[in-house]
């Protein structure tokens, strides 16, 4: 079984190469880059919206990228049940495009934070998290990662088990609602997360290898 993965490249994406490198390093993955102006996804199993600063984060993170031609395709792909993973700026794009609920706003501490943080996986029953350990460490690197959702939306997410990642160890580095670090859509085939799994695929580089477990989960699900 091989997963055909595509990493979307927007102008200003800067974790696209890291995602490609990480997936190339995983067994069972074939990966290619997809320029944002393309209009077809052609036979993919997984689409990754990488981190970075698409369109310089001008206006709001993800607000301009969501109008790229390829995002329409990604929306259709998700409706058909394809796996979509939005990391950091990719998560922001998924929210702006309405594929996931809520918003990501400026960190409560007002400053960018880059460091590995402790996380808790609170639902291992999604295709992305079957093999993810309950306690894990992944790097974050963002200035606008405070997840916000209103009370109604939050109870719905909780009730449906769609909050899959929370900041743990008594920390909440960006002030997110209920320490939310990652959520899935209703069908469970779209995951948006602020931490960077692609940076944690080799122990020396990202301080842990917990990032691999997300990709291993997908392989098992597929």
């Amino acid at each position: 079984m091989t997963i055909e993965a595509g990493v979307i490249v927007f102008p200003g994406s800067n974790c696209d190469r890291d995602c490609v490198r990480a997936l190339k390093g995983m067994e069972g993955y074939r990966v290619r880059e997809i320029w944002h102006r393309e209009t077809e996804l052609g036979g993919l199993d997984l689409v990754v919206l990488p981190g970075g600063f698409s369109y310089g984060d001008y206006l709001r993170p993800g607000a301009i990228a969501r109008f790229s031609p390829i995002v329409r395709e990604v929306t259709r792909f998700a409706e058909r049940g394809g796996y979509v993973l939005g990391i950091c700026n990719g998560f922001q794009i998924l929210l702006e495009a309405g594929l996931l609920p809520g918003a990501l706003i400026r960190n409560a501490g007002l400053r960018f934070i880059c460091e590995p943080v402790p996380l808790e996986c609170t639902n291992t029953n999604t295709p992305f998290t079957k093999k993810v350990p309950r306690n894990l460490t992944l790097p974050i690197a963002h200035g606008q990662g405070r997840y916000f959702i209103d009370e109604t939306g939050r109870s719905k997410l909780e009730a449906e088990g769609r909050i899959v990642l929370r900041y743990a160890g008594g920390t909440n580095p960006n002030g997110s609602t209920n320490r939310i670090a990652g959520i899935v859509n209703e069908k469970g085939n779209v995951l948006g997360m602020m931490p960077h799994p692609e940076r944690a695929c080799e122990i020396l580089i990202g301080s842990s290898e917990d990032g691999r477990s997300f990709f291993e989960s997908l392989l098992q699900a597929a």
Binding site: F112, I113, C114
Partner: peptide, 25 residues
């Protein structure tokens, strides 16, 4: 340095950040 993205590019050997010299593969 916590405000700087020290890891993008996935070349930085994490434990060397904030040490004597940074090492990149």
């Amino acid at each position: 340095y916590r405000q700087y993205d020290t890891m993008v590019g996935t070349r930085t050997v994490w434990k060397t950040v904030g040490g004597d010299a940074a090492v990149l593969r």
